[in-house]
Design a protein around this nucleic acid. Structure first.
Lengths: 143, 143
DNA sequence: CCATGTTAGTCAATACATTGACTGTATGCC
DNA sequence: GGCATACAGTCAATGTATTGACTAACATGG
């Protein structure tokens, strides 16, 4: 029995921290962090290169943050930037061969982990949670 | 219509970022951050002093993190540390007079904001969401 | 009494995340 | 054409969050 009530806002923030912490060991052997994973997965999903700003919008982080994240992924040899001849402002980001291989290796691990998450909690509740989270994100995105 | 599906884990992490971002302006005039708010509120709730490790457990962050957070709150003159004569390892953290006054001023603002959150989303869903979040936290806390 | 193990707190290194300020490129309207 | 505006990317400063490594103090069982 929890001795302190946790409001929704604090709960979501604490849950996010906890998820990140528990997720980290899954990716540890590959030397990537959960946030790096999210970028790698987004790049593979896109089936083509993306701009920094496009990635930032998709993952809902600032473009300044994305600059650093991509720099680290480039350092690791998992992603690369190329100039876009059509728009000299943009660079197109894409997975390297190693990056793509890594995503293919890690995706099942990630999905397994997510699937096992909430084995205590009824399936219906998890689905409802997912939907409500999306609604809240949409609502907050405007403001 | 969202073009990309967002799984629960990514959704919760993105929602937490978004909540923090939207919450920040509420506290901006008082020069505190949402995370600092969470500590101040916890200290007021406790009705007595707390140890660093106790605070860290309650808010589910590492004690190393708490060291820095408390140092910043002390710098701001909102919290203070005193030695515990019963246990020379511990320091007891408590609100200063200014800290207590600030919490009293900010708490209604915070609660209003939380209350208005999800005006699109039925009350029942919000309550269900809160419960599910708590369950997931409990499950992950063990592992 | 003392060895062992646990707990409280700190420091350092690294990653993530924000805002503000800035450069350079593109776009659109007159 | 040229100016205003918006957008892409970066740098710097600050705060949050983690782990690992360490010291000091407490607690327990020989």
């Amino acid at each position: 029995m929890p001795d302190h009530e946790r409001d929704l806002v604090s709960g979501v923030i604490q849950l996010a921290n906890l998820l990140t912490r528990r997720l980290a060991p899954i990716f540890e052997r590959a030397k990537v962090t959960p946030q790096q994973w999210s970028i790698l997965a987004a790049l593979e999903d896109s089936e083509s290169s993306m701009t920094l700003a496009g990635l930032a919008r998709k993952l809902m982080v600032s473009k300044q943050n994305m600059t650093g994240m991509i720099a680290r992924l480039e350092q690791l040899g998992l992603a690369e930037r190329n100039e876009d001849p059509k728009d000299l402002r943009s660079s197109r980001v894409q997975l390297t061969r190693r990056g793509r291989a890594l995503v293919e290796k890690l995706r099942p691990l990630y999905e397994d982990w997510c699937g096992k998450l909430g084995h205590d909690v009824p399936e219906r509740e998890i689905a409802a949670l997912t939907r409500t989270v999306d609604r809240l994100i949409s609502e907050l995105e405007q403001g």
